[in-house]
Design a protein around this nucleic acid. Structure first.
Length: 483
RNA sequence: GUCCCCAUCGUCUAGAGGCCCAGGACGCUGGCCUUUCAAGCCGGCAACACGGGUUCGAAUCCCGUUGGGGAUACCA
């Protein structure tokens, strides 16, 4: 059977790096087995959900090259793919559960729940106004007086699942972690529908995964515990649950869970801005929590061919910016130059250069600087002087290499340069020619040329640099330096 | 607190009882190459959390301890 998997983000901000990896693992699984990858927007948190966030998620996935078969902009058989558009469906199911005595309307007022809370707090020695979560930690459980009533009345209510009183434990076989179990008694009457009629995560998630015929749910380990109430729902609704796969978390360099607040790198798009290739990020994030022997670099095809849940790790991984950087350097060096150029163009624009993607100077430029750059930003910055007319010479470099001897060498080199075919090889030869002629060291010839032509002491090889500049510009700069 | 998950170099990891006095990668570091800077190449440092078992034999299995993370909402 072809798998149907999904990525179900909540649109409450940018695409989070952890979410991106969850999406990737699911996508890889679908692509490998010829299955379907569904994108579902869980927008039930009305306070935090925004249309901009939906767009940010779509943009992030698109940049990474993760496409979806069903979801926003991709009509499919199980529409809609936004939870807020199928409220009626949740209500229908909730009412069915109520009618069957498997859920109930909880009309408990604020006062009633508070009274119960205060009583518990007192018995445990807490202040009367102790934080709800603190009390939960101390073992407070809300047991509604409406649990066993069926009467309806006016006024707001939440719909709660009526947890059966069962002994023993239940669980599931996680595709990465193995068997996970929990005693029934650990579950309580969780809320299905809020007062405003909007479903809560556990309910909406189960209904949608069922409705969308999801066969495997792959998500972060933070959801392990919510699998249990969800399993109860499947059982109660008479549905068979999908398989589950829980992926390890990604921690920040400080070993805290990667969060939007403290970790800028949690935003997928900051890496785009930083000049990281999308595939480098994919490669990095894939290797964080998954492995394939000693392999480190993977093309997308490799990943699709080799990815499996069995080799997803069990341990949280720490974000390692150096490794991301190395991977970016690797893909900068090994990708098709044309592809690098395409990714580079926006950065050129940011650097103030209006160059079209098919400018013939771009490929040689990428070839010259890709081994010297960590990011596309580096390449764009390096490229800038090559598009200008004339160059400002660094005084320290001039002092060192454009002394009278330096200029003498430069003069000799210039004379040869004029006669040569303007290509890397013959141009490189000029250093040897002058060295043979004068008995000087190669550095004493190459450096004055380099400084004259680039303004500094660091650049690609002389021949390559000269070609990049073009004959006219190169000669112009040399003459300027000679003055 | 309770429940759940986890535990190999600083970091990501290989390792499914003997092939491991533990391999790869990043980083760090020494060198080679070299007209600069990179890249590349060769080398080095560096780990099985601890304690008990099981076994002829354990990084690998079991138990406990410790440590880390996650969940405990009318967020997802």
């Amino acid at each position: 059977m072809k798998p149907r998997v999904r990525f179900a983000p909540s649109p409450t901000g940018y695409l989070h790096i952890g979410g991106a990896r969850t999406a990737l693992f699911n996508w890889l699984h679908a692509r490998r087995h010829g299955g379907t990858f569904v994108l579902r927007i869980e927008d039930t948190d009305q306070e935090r959900s925004t249309p901009e966030s939906v767009q940010a998620i779509l943009d992030g996935l698109t940049w990474l090259g993760i496409d979806w078969d069903e979801g926003p902009g991709k009509p499919g058989p199980y529409e809609p793919y936004f939870q807020m558009k199928k409220l009626a469906r949740y209500h229908e199911l909730a009412n069915q559960l109520i009618a069957e005595g498997k859920a109930y309307r909880d009309y408990a007022t604020e006062e009633e729940t508070r009274a119960a809370r205060v009583e518990f707090a007192k018995s445990k020695g807490f202040a009367a106004d102790a934080d709800f979560l603190e009390l939960r930690k101390a073992g407070f459980k809300w047991r509604s007086p409406w649990r066993d009533k069926t009467e309806q009345r006016e006024g707001p209510f939440v719909v709660r699942f009526k947890m059966p009183e069962l002994s023993g434990s239940f669980g599931f076989d996680d595709q990465v972690l193995g068997r996970i179990e929990k005693p029934y008694e650990d579950l309580d009457d969780f809320v299905l529908l809020r007062t405003d009629g909007i479903p809560l995560y556990n309910f909406g998630c189960v209904v949608d995964d069922h409705d969308m015929h999801i066969t495997l749910v792959g998500r972060g380990q933070e959801h392990i515990n919510s699998t249990f109430p969800q399993l109860m729902l499947y059982k109660t609704l008479g549905w068979s649950p999908p398989q589950f796969a829980h992926f390890p978390l990604i921690l920040g360099p400080d070993r805290e869970k990667l969060s939007k607040r403290r970790h800028p790198e949690a935003d997928v798009m900051v890496h785009k801005k930083n000049g990281i290739l999308p595939h480098a990020l994919i490669n990095f994030v894939a290797r964080l929590g998954w492995s394939h022997g000693n392999d480190e670099t993977f093309t997308l095809e490799d990943l699709i061919q080799k990815f499996d849940f069995a080799h997803v790790g069990h341990t949280s991984g720490v974000w390692n910016p150096e490794k991301l950087s190395w991977l970016n350097e690797h893909w900068l060096k090994t990708s098709e130059p044309k592809d690098v150029v395409r990714a580079l163009v926006p950065f050129l624009a940011d650097a103030g250069l209006t160059v079209s993607a098919d400018d013939p100077r771009l490929v040689p430029l990428v070839l010259a600087f890709r081994t010297r750059a960590k990011t596309l930003v580096d390449i764009a910055n390096a490229a800038k002087p090559y598009f200008a007319h004339g160059v400002a010479i660094d005084p320290a470099a001039a002092a060192k290499h454009l002394s009278s001897e330096g200029k003498a060498m430069l003069q000799k080199a210039r004379a040869h340069l004029e006669t040569l075919e303007w290509a890397q090889k013959p141009l490189d030869g000029v250093v040897d020619t002058v060295a043979a002629e004068t008995g000087a060291k190669k550095g004493a010839i190459a450096q004055p040329i380099r400084v004259a032509v680039t303004g500094g002491t660091v650049s690609p090889g002389i021949g390559e640099t000269l070609v990049l500049l073009g004959r006219d510009e190169a000669l112009f700069r040399i003459d300027a330096a000679l003055k």
